[in-house]
Design a protein around this nucleic acid. Structure first.
Length: 696
DNA sequence: GTTAGGG
DNA sequence: CCCTAAC
């Protein structure tokens, strides 16, 4: 076959491929553009065996495949329905289970949805008019649904571009329920913020939109599902009530804690993993043991006996302190668990504690993610947070909107409130030009979460109540606030944002945006403001700010701290973290390695001495002996530093001729004597293994 | 849990 | 300084 014929062949082939139906039709002289008529089956023709739904046809009604099989072919069916379906055992529990199932079903069917489209469907069904503009209805991306796990990234993205993006969203959100959840814990068992006071507080916080009333009434009106909620196996966070440092726990204990937290065993031995999971679990779970009042996702959840309703008409002043971030993550685990453990069908008595957290999502099927997707790497998140840090230059407190009524204050607390590293930060770019300022959240570095988490945990424990705003998914922040007395007119917000080293937001990855934190410290309710640990959504703040209907007069105000005792407590907590988090802005504008801590000469000397004493490689030993007071220097750090020293010593004077390295001195130059000592040690100690032989 | 080595 | 395989 010649090359030409081959190409011809190919061309023909290609032409055939490119032939369209119309081309073919034309070639066969079929009229192009002829009106098409639908095919109608012949009325008297029963035999269309290829048609779908053949059994739906009238002439097939009542056709029994088994019967036909038996008569025609003499085949008896052995089908046993029970082989494929579970028989419900009738017993004492069945009744309850059925009732619960019915209840759940009713709830699911009756529940308001937060998904715009489902909402639309519902409204359409009920024949009402949906008063949402088309743009919102069809064009807006529904941020509520985090169905692929990317919402998190998205939230981070959103976070960094609040200004542009949020305006859009907030309008959508206002159309829905602005606040989803509040969680309160009563203080001494007799006095607690009542539902209504909480509701009022939220009512005050939320801008007036037509939907608010609906929502709030819903919040106020305790759902009758409460009874179901108190039961079941709860995570035992009593384990975490004391001053337990997760870092000091062994893997075994961590595993036990994990079990207590999640209600299941784990074989994972990775400490860090365990710690993170536990922390997450803690963050996300409801511990009813110390909580009398919970509002979860539009529902008031009450524990045990009736809570008192004393403070119905007190007003609230929120004093935002400490901000940190809670990133939403892995809430899917939660839902999955829920599906597995608390369905009625499996007859399990154990209700997963996820029940509380997730059942609401059952009511919102749209909230249930389809599948889990890999979460962004820590590096990714970190890079993002770095960008964010640069972008939104943190400012110290600021004013917000002005209006006739000075009802809200932005307050700044003394920096020393929660320790030396405290800072008051707000970001001003977050609210789409509304002018309000949002707490600036410092995202923290990837490792050593413990330093950040424990203070947060402890802070939380010093709080009297825990408020969780569950708005839209994702971007949650946590802070602690003082809530003061209510006045009829409104409320006071005094905001002070402090970074009290509680920056381990990342570790608090909230598996679900609608989760509950507890506060474990009981506190007498007195004239003092109630301390609240607040987790709020950035979107909430957005909504809050973007409403023109309710205006707030915010003013900068510094208040005196009232809680010396607490401060003392915090201070004592503080001592445990002797290594404060450092971010070093460099001269050329960037941010340096977040935790760069230059080695001091004395440290180097200590290290060299340590190596001389114990030998290179006994890093943990050296760490224990010589660096016990330097908690930020890990054995790995020592090893790294020694490696660098060795490199430096070799580069500096490989043969003692003292040629300075071409590499410029990044930090302080190591004195030659030390370097020579390093070399000396290296020589004497690495008799067998040649160190860094690759370089020479 | 610690260390080595790559990044 | 971080990460992680390997010990």
């Amino acid at each position: 076959m010649s090359a030409d014929s081959l190409t011809n062949e190919l061309q023909n082939e290609r032409q055939k491929e490119l032939m369209t139906d119309s081309c073919i039709s034309q070639s066969q002289h079929v009229k192009v553009g002829e009106d098409l008529e639908p095919w109608v089956p012949d009325e008297n023709d029963p035999g269309c065996p290829e048609l779908e739904n053949i059994f739906d046809n009238p002439w097939n009604r009542g056709w029994d495949q088994f019967e036909t099989n038996a008569t025609l072919f003499g085949v008896e069916s052995t089908l046993n329905e029970e082989l494929y379906t579970a028989n419900l055992e009738s017993g004492p529990q069945t009744r309850e289970l059925e009732m619960e199932a019915t209840h759940l079903a009713r709830e699911i069917e009756g529940e308001d949805t937060l998904d715009l489209h489902l909402f639309e469907e519902k409204v359409n069904q009920s024949g009402e008019n949906l008063e949402i503009d088309e743009e919102t209805q069809f064009s807006s991306v529904s941020r509520k649904v985090d169905d692929n796990g990317c919402g998190e990234i998205e939230n981070i993205l959103l976070d960094s571009q609040n200004g542009e993006t949020f305006g859009d969203i907030s309008s959508t959100v206002i159309g829905r329920s602005p606040i989803d959840t509040i969680v309160g814990k009563n203080i001494d068992g007799t006095q607690a913020l009542s539902r209504s006071s909480v509701t009022e507080m939220i009512a005050s916080l939320i801008p007036d939109t037509s939907d608010d009333s609906v929502l709030l009434s819903e919040v106020a009106e305790s759902k009758n599902s409460n009874s179901r909620l108190g039961i079941g196996v709860k995570p035992n966070f009593a384990l975490l009530n004391g001053e337990i440092d997760l870092d000091n726990l062994s893997v075994k204990v961590l595993q036990e804690t994990f079990k207590a937290t999640f209600g299941r065993e784990t074989s994972v031995k990775d400490k860090m993993w365990l710690k993170r999971r536990i922390i997450m679990g803690l963050t996300n779970s409801c511990d009813f043991s110390t909580t009398n009042l919970l509002l979860i996702d539009n529902r008031v959840v009450k524990k045990g006996k009736e809570e008192t309703r004393k403070n119905t008409d007190c007003s609230v002043s929120v004093d935002f302190a400490v901000t940190s971030e809670v990133e939403s993550r892995e809430r899917h685990t939660c839902t999955n668990k829920q599906n597995g453990t608390s369905t009625v069908a499996n007859g399990m008595q154990t209700q997963s504690y996820f029940q509380e957290n997730c059942e609401s999502k059952d009511a919102y099927p749209e909230l249930r993610p389809a599948k889990r997707v890999r979460k962004p790497t820590k590096r990714f998140i970190e890079e993002f947070s770095e960008e964010e840090c640069r972008d939104s230059g943190a400012k110290i407190v600021s004013l917000v909107k002005h209006n006739s009524k000075p009802s809200a204050y932005v307050c700044e607390r003394p920096v020393h409130d929660f320790g030396p590293s405290s800072r008051c930060l707000l970001r001003e770019d977050s609210l789409g030009g509304s002018g309000i300022q949002v707490p600036y959240v410092s995202r923290i570095r990837r490792s050593r979460p413990r330093e950040n988490f424990m203070p947060l945990l402890l802070l939380m424990k010093t709080c009297d109540i825990v408020l969780v705003s569950l708005l839209d998914g994702g971007n949650l922040r946590a802070c602690s606030c003082d809530i003061q007395k209510f006045q009829s007119g409104g409320f006071e917000i005094s905001t002070s944002l402090e970074k009290n080293g509680v920056s381990s937001c990342k570790e608090l990855e909230n598996e679900s945006e609608n989760e509950v934190l507890k506060s474990g410290m009981s506190h007498k309710y007195s004239q003092e403001p109630v301390r609240a640990f607040v987790i709020f959504s950035m979107l909430f703040v957005q909504v809050f700010a973007s409403s023109e209907k309710r205006k707030f007069y915010m003013e900068k105000k510094t208040i005196q701290l009232k809680r010396d005792s607490q401060r003392k407590k915090m201070r004592s907590y503080k001592t445990s973290s002797d290594d404060e988090v450092v971010t070093v802005p460099t001269a050329n504008g960037g941010i340096r390695r977040k935790h760069h801590r230059p080695w001091s000469l004395s440290e180097v000397v200590k290290l060299v001495e340590g190596v001389a004493k114990y030998g290179a490689g006994r890093w943990s030993e050296i760490k224990r002996v010589a660096f016990s007071s330097y908690s930020y220097r890990t054995s790995v750090d020592l090893k790294d530093k020694w490696r660098n020293l060795l490199k430096a010593s070799l580069a500096e004077s490989p043969t003692g001729n003292g040629i300075p390295s071409a590499r410029k001195q990044a930090s302080l130059p190591i004195p030659a004597p030390i370097l020579s000592r390093v070399r000396e040690l290296a020589d004497t100690q690495t008799h067998v293994t040649p160190i860094l032989s690759s370089g020479s």
